[in-house]
């Protein structure tokens, strides 16, 4: 407990020194309140995204058109529940509480990734989510394996490995569908048309309008800007779309030899802001579903706690 008696300036110097040397901060370390709050917000929103993200794909488990695809999809959605669990646990190392974070989610006080406010309309959406949405998530998340907060960085290593697996499964589903019937190819193109722009929005607002980027980069809890990551994603996606044989829905997409990057059309940031404000196609439905599961399960959790107390008393 010597940490408490040290003057704050010295603690802060130690904290900054740890970050400067690219070392990890651990739960036992003194952390500035702002850093702690930022990390809880970042990790909780990531956890919420995993849990809300189970819904759009979960929508197709019972209808998956082959037993192999059904098993793959159920296992994937199960992995997302597992990611939520690790991440809530990482947030708990900062003093947060899982039940409290869930309350914040269902009361709208904490956010989750806007992408999950779009509907999954055909089975091809399962593949396109794997390819583009998990692909964009990986671009965002791989740098977080070097986050300055140790428990988060370690959780991200495992999560990124599983996400990569999901993403390849999604791409493989799309390749199979593109080799199938015309009806299947049409489904893949339609799903690509619907998910492409929302996937680009997953990297967040343009750098000039990103309120938290500067501080997060200084603390090394964020490693690249939104626009840098978005450009990388576009550059990687174009050749993949060619391999698949789908057209990305952007007539302005073209190679710029001077920049050595693809140019792309303007993103509709009004749509992004509208979804962020809660007015996307599925915002209400997603939160209502999470709230219902939480409320319907309250008596079960209370019973488990009561039973555990009885057992503990019996064991004394």
């Amino acid at each position: 407990m010597t940490a408490i008696t040290e003057p704050e300036a010295e603690l802060l110097a130690h904290f900054e020194h740890t970050i400067d040397r690219d070392q990890r901060l651990e739960p036992r370390d003194w952390l500035p309140e702002g850093y702690r709050r930022t990390m809880i917000r970042q990790i909780a929103q990531h956890a919420h995204s995993e849990i809300i993200g189970m819904q759009p794909e979960g929508n197709w488990i019972t209808r998956a058109p082959s037993l192999r695809r059904k098993a793959i999809l159920l296992a994937k959605v199960q992995d997302e529940a597992g990611h939520g669990l690790y991440l809530y646990s990482a947030a708990e190392t900062l003093g947060a509480d899982r039940a409290d974070l869930t309350d914040r989610l269902i009361n709208g006080r904490q956010k989750y990734s806007s992408i999950f406010n779009y509907p999954t309309l055909t089975f091809a959406d399962v593949g396109v989510i794997g390819w583009l949405v998990d692909g964009a998530a990986i671009c965002n998340q791989v740098p977080l394996c070097r986050s300055s907060y140790g428990p988060y960085a370690r959780a991200m290593i495992r999560i990124c490995k599983e996400e990569s697996f999901h993403q390849r499964q999604g791409f493989e589903l799309l390749m199979t569908m593109m080799r199938g019937t015309q009806g299947q190819r049409d489904m893949v193109q339609d799903a690509t048309n619907r998910w492409w722009w929302p996937s680009l929005m997953m990297f967040g607002p343009p750098d000039a309008e990103s309120p938290n980027t500067e501080q997060s980069m200084a603390w090394k809890v964020k490693r690249h800007t939104n626009d840098e990551l978005r450009q990388r994603f576009v550059d990687m996606s174009v050749p993949q779309a060619e391999v698949l044989g789908v057209t990305l829905p952007d007539p302005k997409l073209s190679w710029n030899a001077d920049r050595e990057h693809y140019d792309f059309g303007a993103i509709d940031w009004d749509e992004f802001q509208n979804v962020l404000r809660g007015n996307g196609p599925c915002n209400t439905q997603r939160v209502a579903q999470r709230r219902k599961a939480s409320e319907d399960g309250a008596w079960v959790r209370e019973a488990a706690a009561a039973h555990a107390r009885k057992k503990a008393q019996g064991d004394e």
Binding site: G58, A71, R290
Partner: peptide, 27 residues
Amino acid sequence: QQWCTNAPELEDEVALANIGLDLIGQA
């Protein structure tokens, strides 16, 4: 599978999916 996203706790999401997967494998 219909319990998916409806379970009372995340640990049960994982467990119920596990059992569902085992049974798909048996089928």
